[in-house]
Every structure is written in structure tokens, then in C-alpha cells.
Nucleic acid binder design. Structure first.
Length: 156
DNA sequence: GCCAACGTTGGC
DNA sequence: GCCAACGTTGGC
């Protein structure tokens, strides 16, 4: 099957591309939205490439590239009473929330900002351009992925 | 800090 | 199963 491409949002004040570079890889924990969960559970395969998006940042935008390094497994934070992601309705035998691991690939020389993404005709149709696109994990077309990666490699 | 957009919850 | 109320996301 063809490799798929994704966009994953993270608030850099919580976890940034620099944190991922330092850690090498991470659990993508805390997703509590069913559509986003279903992408991780059903569709994200090892080797898929990910646009690492900084949300709630100034400016928001794609900061680099990551890669799925481990496929779907239960999100441990759902069972951890001390975690803010604790879900009392989730059972160990029947976990409700799943995650994937992602590993660092590259940090862009220069962040591809949301305004730039919105201005670029080649990126027409990207989900992240839509008003109110709150979904924290989004599928991305290969052409859009390649375009963002190309723009991200520029120096200025 | 505001608020529009959207997802979830819970009463009925 | 509907839908109002509420909570969250995230750009601005």
C-alpha cells in the first residue's frame, strides 16, 4: 500500500519539534478525539511521514518532519489517575484510546507558517487551511506534503 | 483575552 | 435519537 502522509498538531509550549529532536522519538499521548484516534488506530503505518505542526504558537505552522516509528498501541495515560488524560471510563482489557510513536526526521530551517500555507495556491485544499479545522491529526496529500517540505528547506 | 467552530454530554 | 448546554481548540 502507498505510504500515507499526515499532519500532527502540538503546542510547542507543551512539546515542540526541538523536544522531539532531543528525545529522538515520543508517544503521541493525550489524543481524546475519536476521529484522530481512528487515524492512529486504523491508518497510520510505520514509516508514514508526518508534518509536525506547532499550534497555538506565534506564528502557527509546520516546524519539521517526523516519521511513525511504532504503530498503534494503548495510550498509557488513560489508566494513570495522576495524568490529566486519565479516563475513568477506559478499561485495561478494553482500552478506549490509542496512540502511535513518532521519531524525529528533520527540523525545517524556517517554519512554514499558517499564513504562508494559506497563501500558497499549490496547497489549496489542505485541511489545516479550513476555518475551524480543529482536528489534531489530519491526513495530507502527497503533493501537499512534498510542497511543504520543499518550502521548509528554503533558507532566508 | 476573545470568540467562532466544533465535539461531547446528558436530559428527555 | 434529538438537541441544548457546556467544554475545548486554536487563530487572531
Amino acid at each position: 500500500m502507498a505510504r500515507r502522509y499526515w499532519l500532527m498538531k502540538s503546542e510547542p509550549s507543551t512539546y515542540s519539534i526541538d523536544d522531539l529532536e532531543k528525545d529522538g522519538s515520543t508517544y503521541w499521548d493525550g489524543v481524546r478525539n475519536y476521529r484522530a484516534r481512528n487515524f492512529m488506530r486504523d491508518d497510520m503505518k510505520k514509516g508514514d511521514l508526518v508534518l509536525f505542526y506547532h499550534s497555538n504558537a506565534d506564528p502557527p505552522g509546520v516546524a519539521g518532519i517526523a516519521r511513525v516509528s511504532r504503530e498503534c498501541h494503548p495510550d498509557p495515560t488513560q489508566f494513570d489517575k495522576r495524568s490529566k488524560y486519565f479516563d475513568p471510563k477506559s478499561e485495561k482489557a478494553k482500552p478506549r484510546w490509542f496512540l502511535v510513536d513518532v521519531e524525529f526526521v528533520e527540523k525545517f530551517a524556517d517554519l512554514v507558517s499558517l499564513p504562508e500555507i494559506k497563501d500558497d495556491d499549490a496547497l489549496d485544499g489542505m485541511m489545516v487551511r479550513q476555518r475551524g479545522a480543529r482536528l489534531s491529526i489530519q491526513p495530507v496529500d502527497k503533493e501537499h506534503f512534498d510542497r511543504i517540505r520543499k518550502v521548509g528547506k528554503r533558507k532566508r
